[in-house]
């Protein structure tokens, strides 16, 4: 019963999101009460669908990049030859997390200029910590008996990594990626302050023109997108965990 309610809510959310992005004008009456002095209730300075798409793209590419780097780093420092780098990598990604997003954005502007660049860098940097930490946990919690058996079967180090350790760490790595994606979707809106293409544009336009309707619709689209992606990724993770009978890792 409870499951089906959740599924219906998600379905309705997805349909509403799609409908709003494709035909925003249809929702104008809903947002009209939030405007004053005859301001437009729906953002028209740019195509909402295109903005949502580039918002989504930048999040996906940045998270892919941080997954690639964080997982490689996690693999490296769990090898015997990379163990020397473990304490420092841990400290660096932790300290990196204390950098506020606005600061990262603002400080990368002189390096790469205005546009998508600073946002990409900020999202990339923020994704590193959760994915790196989860990769570490995932690899370290592979039971010793299993890696031992893999060695005893005559697997080479590369075969052990790709056939045993990484597949077993996968659910944990996915947890990290999921947390990173949700944070990235929110942070990407701040990117619009340095001219990144994304849904932040709508919100900022609302702030500048004192139009609450813009703020609310921008916020809602981003929130809905984050919630739907979070749920989808959680479901994927659970299905893998369930199949493997691995201990569930709840880290919300």
């Amino acid at each position: 019963m409870k499951v089906s309610v959740g599924t219906i809510a998600r379905l309705v959310g997805a349909i509403l999101l799609a409908a709003f992005l494709v035909r925003p004008e249809a929702f104008a009456p809903l947002f009209a009460p939030l405007t004053s002095n005859g301001a437009p209730p729906i953002y028209r300075q740019g195509n909402l669908l295109a903005l949502a798409w580039s918002h989504f793209q930048i999040v996906v590419f940045a998270t892919l990049a941080s997954t690639l780097v964080a997982v490689s780093l996690g693999v490296l420092v769990t090898r015997r030859s990379g163990a020397e780098f473990l304490p420092l990598s841990r400290a660096v990604v932790n300290v990196g997390q204390t950098f506020p997003p606005v600061a990262v954005l603002a400080l990368t502007v002189p390096l790469v200029g205005f546009g998508d660049g600073p946002t990409f860098i900020a999202l990339f940097a923020y994704g590193l910590l959760p994915i790196f930490e989860n990769t570490l946990v995932g690899i370290q919690q592979v039971p010793a008996a299993v890696t031992e058996a893999a060695r005893g079967c005559g697997m080479t180090p590369a075969q052990r990594l790709f056939r045993v350790e990484l597949p077993l760490a996968l659910p944990q790595i996915m947890t990290g990626t999921r947390l990173a994606v949700v944070v990235a979707i929110g942070t990407a809106t701040i990117g619009s302050t340095v001219a990144a293409k994304g849904l932040g544009e709508v919100i900022i336009a609302g702030l500048l023109s004192d139009n609450t309707a813009f703020i609310v619709q921008g916020g809602l689209v981003v929130a809905l997108m984050a919630a739907l992606i979070y749920d989808a990724m959680l479901a994927a993770e659970r299905s893998i965990i369930l199949r493997l009978g691995l201990p569930a890792n709840e880290r919300e």
Partner: peptide
């Protein structure tokens, strides 16, 4: 062949 205590089967 190699058999260990707690079997060490690959859970995945």
């Amino acid at each position: 062949g190699y058999v260990i205590q707690g079997h060490g089967l690959f859970p995945h």
